[in-house]
Design a protein around this nucleic acid. Structure first.
Length: 319
DNA sequence: AAAGACACCAACCGCCCAACC
DNA sequence: TGGTTGGGCGGTTGGTGTCTT
């Protein structure tokens, strides 16, 4: 039995998400938080599989998403991290607040890879194309990663650590034999990782004035979710709702908006935050739930969700 | 103006791992 | 201890917009 049969059997929807579906999912997660994804479709009234809901939330609806074009700093960082981590997009995304692995992966495949090739650099080895025959030295790769990042991004030196060396695929890495090959420093880093967590932005948001821009600086704000962004200004319109499914023009418009929000001043402020982020801690189990004041288990069925679904949500105006 | 090629990116697929029973 | 389930990840696909001829 393949997945297709599951979709057919349960008459699950596939493909692009409609604004209505987005709204249902958004309303549900913002009210009840992230819990068991497999139960989300049922409880939120969506005819999607849990995985699809999770993906949509993570890659599109999550309030901390930055979206828009990548800055030069981000671009540089992706290239540096890719040199160290390879195609481990989730780990790369973890170092870039507001960016998803999917977004970075797409950006890499559609733009950065070609850019490097144009510059005569092999996008896989990150060496000049003429030096492709050279075999990379992977030992001490974790240290190399940290050094690379520290040299290129001094502002992040204390908050970014590489979790795993380049070619140690997570699945292989659990092997004791391989672990033994690491240097003492690398092992320590892996064991006692103090990794910058992009989700600390949730904390930031929680402490932020929900109506006004951060510290009066309009360049710096959580502007990923158009509806939230516009809600900051006290109103929203139907056209503000993110809709990748009906119009690609909307994506372009959104992108243009985001460019305005992410000036270099904003990035500078972000860097300052990153510098200070070493002081922050985040309980992984409560990353998202703490953003939303509603516990996941506060809802038992779809009826509860409907009853609890008041009209205070920004999206409710779309109804 | 039309058709084909290309680019972009949201969403899906398949696999792995960990937790749970 | 083995099976099941859910979550996470990287690779890939396919739909749509844009560009080129």
């Amino acid at each position: 039995m393949g997945r297709h049969s599951v979709y057919v059997k349960e008459k699950l929807r596939r493909g692009l998400w409609s604004p209505d579906e987005d709204e249902k999912l958004y309303n549900y997660i913002t009210r009840f938080g992230v819990g068991c994804w497999s139960s989300v479709p049922k409880l939120s009234g969506l005819q999607r599989c849990g995985k699809s809901c999770r993906l949509r939330w993570i890659n599109y609806l999550r309030p901390d998403l930055k979206r828009g074009t990548f800055s030069l700093e981000e671009e540089d960082m992706i290239i540096t991290l890719h040199e160290v981590l390879g195609n481990r997009w989730a780990q790369i995304a973890a170092k870039l607040p507001g960016r998803t692995d999917n977004e970075i992966k797409n950006y890499w495949n559609s733009y950065l890879k070609k850019k490097l090739i144009k510059q005569g650099i092999d996008p896989i080895t990150h060496k000049p194309l003429s030096e492709n025959h050279q075999v990379r030295n992977d030992t001490n790769c974790t240290d190399k990663a940290s050094m690379l990042l520290m040299s290129k991004f001094p502002n992040m030196s204390n908050s970014v650590e590489i979790e795993q060396p380049f070619h140690f695929n997570k699945r292989i890495f659990n092997s004791e034999a391989i672990t033994r090959q690491l240097t003492e420093v690398s092992r320590n880093q892996l064991v006692s990782k103090q990794v910058f967590d992009p989700l600390f932005l949730y904390d930031f948001q929680a402490n932020m004035n929900p109506i006004g821009p951060y510290d009066g600086n309009q360049d710096f704000g959580i502007c990923s979710m158009p509806n939230l962004t516009n809600f900051e200004h006290g109103h929203m319109t139907e056209s503000d709702f993110s809709d990748s499914s009906t119009s690609r023009m909307s994506t372009s418009n959104r992108t243009n908006t985001m460019i305005r929000h992410h000036s270099s001043a904003g990035i500078h402020q972000m860097n300052e935050m990153l510098e200070n982020s070493q002081e922050l801690t985040w309980d992984a189990d409560n990353k998202i739930d703490s953003l939303f004041e509603y516990p996941y288990d506060g809802i038992k069925n779809e009826e509860d969700f409907s009853n609890n679904n008041n009209n205070n949500n920004p999206l409710s105006s779309l109804l």
